[in-house]
Design a binder for these strands. Structure first.
Lengths: 228, 228
DNA sequence: GCTTACCGAACGGAACTCGATCATGGACGT
DNA sequence: ACGTCCATGATCGAGTTCCGTTCGGTAAGC
């Protein structure tokens, strides 16, 4: 289990959503151009005013090309979300390598920093929550937050000695769900992200986890769970 | 300021969304039948697969009737959300009258109970978050969670002596946003609501607010803010 | 009877299909 | 090595279908 494993394979397990895997280089470029276009359009006209024609035109492609890759309109949005999720994981890894966190909290904080950074820089990111509110009925509530929570749990356990197990996974999942909501709220009131809300989000996450895993300390042995 | 004021006028300030106010009795029934139908359809096919034809047919009405009352498809969804919000406020008031809370936490807990109850009983409720992710650009991030937070703040201040002011509003807004996310998550994994998540949600809300307002005590004087 | 409510065929526009056409890059001969 | 050939991937966009929305005509309340 290395840090890079958190990036994963790019799938968040929501079923097939691409029609044809690109075989030639140009089509890979097309694909990402289509997603770039979709992101721009989403930022401009919003999530449900988006039309396939807009995406195609903005990407310099024709309608048919959109449907070569995606079975329908919502699949494009799903793919956009997938890519954003992937970029978040990558950015989180970058952030970890950059700051070299010394405590488990610093590591968690990297996730917040990565998330906020992407919200600020990435077009279309605002629309895409991890917790896909439009879950497909058969997606067993285990979409993205679950994956990321597990990987983060692995890291916190291996690198910082937190006690691994379902409890850690569960608490991180709660943390991520809260943070997603609060940070999205921060960017809903302010395109740059309301600093007060972001700070409060960090504090809430921190206090919640500290209750279980004790104050963040450097290389000391972890404090065991103190509550239920 | 009475408890009933929290129910408000039924508008959450998202602009006009009804075309014609009903003049006769039957049309009021039609209106709510349309929303019932919309709720059922939303539960069946999901938020963005819903079509006006489905709603009309399910309600035993014709297409034209839908458009007599609502200017377009999204207006129907907005109205459905409005009604759910209104019912939540009503249920919260009922819950308060029923349990006669003795501490500020019991009062907050009533909101959770009301929310969970509605999620379980009300069709279509699952789709409708308070924090409308599809905010209209000019709605200054102040849709529903803001309104409810303010009213709840009023109650907590007047009935239980919590220090009124923008800080209380802000913290309640954070609390509501978290709770909304966590409870929705609870119902995403389990149609009856994952009890563990619901309990954890309560704990998180409680611990967060206790940090500022001290342990819930009966009729004692409130403990003043102990942090920042 | 006059106003309100309702209907559903018809219109427009957006989602999506499909056969024609173009581009790519490995195969193959020299 | 070099060029050419062509199977197959990739692209296009007019056409089809489906859905949101309108509107004139009909029925029901008061």
């Amino acid at each position: 289990m290395s840090l890079n494993d958190i990036i994963g394979d790019g799938s968040t397990g929501q079923g097939q959503q691409i029609r044809t895997e690109p075989m030639q280089q140009r089509s890979a470029a097309r694909l990402s151009a289509l997603l770039d276009a979709a992101a721009a359009v989403v930022d401009e006209v919003g999530f449900d005013r988006i039309t396939t024609a807009m995406v195609a035109e903005r990407a310099g492609a024709s309608i048919g090309t959109v449907y070569r890759y995606y079975p329908d309109r919502v699949a494009v949005l799903h793919a956009l979300r997938e890519r954003a999720v992937l970029r978040f994981r990558q950015r989180f890894v970058e952030e970890m390598n950059l700051t070299r966190p010394e405590t488990w909290w610093d590591a968690v904080d990297c996730a917040v920093t990565a998330f906020v950074g992407l919200y600020r820089s990435e077009a279309g990111f605002r629309i895409l929550h991890f917790a896909d509110r439009e879950r497909t009925p058969e997606a067993d509530g285990d979409a993205e937050s679950g994956f990321f929570a597990r990987r983060l749990a692995d890291i916190l356990a291996e690198e910082f000695g937190l006690p691994a197990g379902p409890d850690l996974n569960f608490r991180l999942e709660m943390t991520i769900e809260m943070a997603d909501a609060l940070l999205s709220r921060a960017f809903a009131s302010d395109p740059q992200g309301d600093e007060r809300i972001i700070a409060e989000c960090r504090r809430i996450m921190h206090d919640y986890l500290v209750g279980f895993y004790g104050p963040s300390v450097g290389s000391n042995a972890p404090v065991l769970s103190q509550r239920s």
